[in-house]
Amino acid sequence: MRKLVAAHTTEAVLFAVIIAISIVLSFATERFFTLGNAFDLLNISAVNIIFAVGLLVVLIAGGIDISFAVAASVVQYVTALLLERIGGGGWVSGLLIAGSAGIGLGLINAFLILRFRIISIVATIATFNVYFGLLMFFTRGVSIYNLPDWLTTRVIVYEREMADGSWAEITLPVVVMAVCVAVTWLFITRTTTGRQLYAFGDNPEGARRFGINIGAMQFIAFGWLGMMAGIAGLMQAHYAQEVVPNALYGRELDVLAAVVLGGARLGGGKGTVLGCVLGVLLVSITQNGLNLMGVSPFAFKMIVGAIILVAITLSSARLENLLPMRTRKGDDR
C-alpha cells in the first residue's frame, strides 16, 4: 500500500484533497453528501473527463493540443448535418460519425506536426483559429436546435428515488465517459503501443534508437484525442440538447489545467488516467460545493483559479527551492 502511494504521489494527494473537501462540504451543506449530488457531479463532469483522457494521451506523447475543443464544435456541426442527411440515424451512427470526424481533425494536426516539423503548440494554435474561424464563418454563428429526437432525449441508465422524493440519476454521458476512461486506461497502460507513447514522450531520441515509429506515435496520440473530442462533442450536444458553435470555445484551457493538475507533465512521459479524472473531479467538486454553500456563481471561477494556482505552486515547489540561496541537490550537475 505504501509502495502504491509512493508511486502515485500526485494521485494520492489529489485524492486526499478531494476527500478533505468532501468531508468539509458534507458537514457544511446538507445536499453534498447525497447520492443525487454525487450522480449530478458525474453527469456534469462527464464531457470534460472524456476531453481530459484524450488530451492526456497527447500530453504523454510529449505534445500539446489547443484545438481539440473547437474541433469538437466542428464535429458537433458535421455530425448534426450528416445525421440530418441520412435521415436521423441513431446512437451507433452518431458515435461513428462523431468519432471519425474527430479523428480526421486530430490527424490534420498530426500531419502538420510530422510532415512539416511544426511544433505542436504552433500547429494546434493555427488549426484552432482555422477550425473556429471556418466554423463561425460557415454557420454564421447560428445554432442548431432541431437535432434528432434520440439525441436530445435524456437517457437515464440508472435511477433511484431518494428519501426526499428527488431522483438520483446516472445518464448516458456518464456511461460513455466510463467506457472512454476504461479504454484509455487499458490503451496506455496495458498495450505495447501505449507504453511506446510513454517512452516516446519520455525520451524521443531513445525511442527512435529502438526503432519506434515516431510518425505513428504522433498520429495515434492526436487521433486518439480527436476521437475523444468527437465523442465528447456529441455528448455535450446531447447534454445541452442543442449545437451552439461557440459553446466549447475556451474549454481547451480549462481541460488542460485540470489534466495537468492531475499530474500529467507538459513535455511528455508522465501522467495517469486516474490523476486526470481526479483533476477534473476536484474542479467540479469545488464548484459544486461552492454552489451548494450558496456562494455567488461569479466567485466560482476565481476560487477555482486560486486553487489551481496554489496547487501548481505547491506541487512544483520543493521547500528548499523556495529559499533563494539554496540550490536543489543535483541541480548544479
Partner: peptide
C-alpha cells in the same frame, strides 16, 4: 537512451514493448 519515468523492469525489457504491432 533510457526512459526515466518508466519502471526499471520496463526499461530492461523494453524490447518486448517495441515493435509496430500493438
Amino acid at each position: 537512451a533510457l526512459f526515466p519515468e518508466m519502471t526499471v523492469a520496463e526499461n530492461i525489457a523494453f524490447q518486448t514493448l517495441s515493435g509496430a504491432r500493438p
